[in-house]
Amino acid sequence: MIHVGLSEIKYAEAPEILKSMGLGSCVGVVIYHESMHIAGMAHVMLPDSTLAHAQSFLPGKFADTAVPELVASLTRRGVSLHELKAKMAGGAEMFKSTRVLALDSIGKRNAEAVRSQLSHFHIPVVAEETGKDFGRTIEFLTGTCQLVIRAISQGERVI
């Protein structure tokens, strides 16, 4: 089991499992090659790196840096770009009743930013479960390319 923490990107090959725990507004995005059983997972926290005040940050933190990094790293490992596929989950809105955060519905914007990055590289989103108001833990099984999603009151789903 390989844990992908906040703002991190990690890679695995079958039979390893990539896992991100407690995704709220964050988005867990997996880019993988179905028959080579190789995958990378990013735990994206924010949509846009131009918002950053700091000069240095982990590429996995922002949607617009995480997806290009995943693509570059996977293609460096000899995977061809047009055979890549993606699955994603997260992007919830945990505090929905009142808007106190300056960034409006950060979860929704994260999911949109990841989708638009993926479409920029022409990577199809095979399955996704995003939005709503609950936290998710995800596991990507590189052997079967299944994404297992768990939430406290929602049980378990496989997409």
Binding site: M21, G22, L46, A92, M94, R136
Partner: peptide, 12 residues
Amino acid sequence: DMEGAILGEGLA
């Protein structure tokens, strides 16, 4: 909910 999910949004 899960602590990570709640803090993640607050800390974004």
